[in-house]
Design a protein around this nucleic acid. Structure first.
Lengths: 258, 258
DNA sequence: ATTTACATGATTGAGAACAGTCATATAAAT
DNA sequence: ATTTATATGACTGTTCTCAATCATGTAAAT
């Protein structure tokens, strides 16, 4: 029987969310959880895949978010080098005594590695990323705060309403954020929760650096963080001309080439 | 043909690493990458899975994110067996659908391992322990919340005023707590912060199990959690007579021998 | 109210993945 | 050097997964 549109949307949204939390969902698991036949479960998955929100595998589906943010350590791609360059550049903005927000994501994690390498002391660091927290807590005089929230196994981070509330209780001297894309319409990320939270961080931070590598220039994502990117700073492994080509509306002095 | 042990180890290590980078590897991909038959690829995967280093799926394997924490593992070596027994017993009190508080500490971590082994689904788990969070989040239908707070590198946990505040926003069906000691004056722990927080958890939980091994009977600690231990339950690898010798004022039916 | 559109579940055949068994060749043990 | 242990690949039958098709009943459109 045909079923109301909103029911379908809700179920697919729920599947996507489930996938975001768990990382991998077998088809039969979906059948059980949502009381649908394999056929519909598969149909939902193919639909979600065509929306680029997941990747199908034999027997189930993989979170796409996982592919964008694979585990942060032990990676050796040429992308990793770019990210390290970007992270290193971003870390030069960090000064002793700052209250600092570090986003979850591999590029910002590289920045954290550079901060540790530079042995910048006496920071107050707030981060939703567990690996990043564990990394920076080795620095002398550094206090690391993790906002509470739902733990996402895939990304080893916390997120959700409570996280947002917690973040709203801080003010930052500097925030380092990752993103999925930036174009003439603004800044984009992968999930509504994360975009929401980043918007709050931007509001509460004296200065915000968007850390990304050049392949993300001109690209978008499922969820808009902000259209108004003029106050932000962009740290990227590309010169101003390349950034201009992506139609990023940002003052030239806010573009920092790594 | 039989092949040298180190070759096998190396290949399996490489598979694990590959998995760490990519997040998901199909079996055939392993066959191609390492020039082995499907049989060996599968054998490697089952071996790695038994080492808890990955999760198998139909057609491949998923990277496992619940990495073991060195600090917790080293603490586990002594009296590990006793703690596992206690943890196993405590886990039998956990039923599907519960809202559950899991304390930070090795004994409760053992209980978490037993919960995972029993594959109890649909829990809502609140824990301040990062390793425990990463362990239990693998269960189906389980949501894991980490209260915000100051990250303590030593214990891989969060603590502090904010953590207490966050905990105070929940109510639990069941709480599993560790402790440093219990005697005629009540329950003891190592730090004021932790005692404070445990007191709050006890207040907010329908049932509280204190999980400890017998060497802690009759011992105290720097900070009192509560003098009124009568409503609590004690899971310990000792019989009622041994508990009585420690002058623990607790109804007999509240003493559970592991 | 009637018609159209379509989401769903059941069925089916094809293809993929799996566990088990066995022969073999080589590493480790003696 | 001889024996034992075992890692491997080939083979096999079974199970699982998948895409396609069709009938059905309900939501949307008219």
């Amino acid at each position: 029987m045909k079923v109301a549109r909103h029911v379908i949307e809700a179920r697919r949204e729920a599947i996507a969310k489930l996938l975001g939390n768990v990382g991998y969902v077998p088809v039969l698991e979906i059948c059980k959880q949502f009381n649908v036949s394999e056929a519909t479960a598969r149909r939902d998955l193919t639909e979600l895949e065509s929306q680029r929100r997941l990747t199908r595998t034999h027997g189930g589906a993989l979170s796409d978010f996982n592919r964008n943010f694979p585990p942060l350590d032990s990676r050796k791609t040429e992308e990793a080098e770019a990210k390290q360059k970007v992270g290193l550049k971003a870390s030069t903005f960090v000064k002793a005594g700052m209250t600092l927000y570090l986003d979850s994501g591999s590029t910002v994690h590289c920045a954290a590695e550079a901060i540790v390498a530079a042995r910048i002391p006496d920071l107050q660091i707030i981060t939703t990323s567990i690996p990043t927290a564990q990394l920076v807590c080795t620095l002398p005089g550094v206090e690391v705060y993790i906002p509470g929230g739902l733990y996402l196994a895939q990304q080893a981070m916390v997120a959700g309403d409570r996280t947002l509330e917690e973040v709203a209780r801080w003010n930052f001297d500097l925030a380092l954020l990752g993103a999925q894309g930036i174009d003439e319409n603004g800044l984009w990320n992968s999930q509504r929760d994360i975009s929401h939270q980043q918007r709050e961080v931007i509001r509460r931070s004296d200065q915000t650096l968007i850390c990304m590598h050049k392949s993300k220039l001109g690209r978008t994502g499922p969820s808009a963080v902000t259209r108004d990117i003029a106050p932000l700073y962009l740290v990227v492994d590309a010169d101003a001309a390349m950034v201009a080509k992506a139609k990023v509306k940002m003052p030239a002095q806010h573009i920092i080439t790594a």
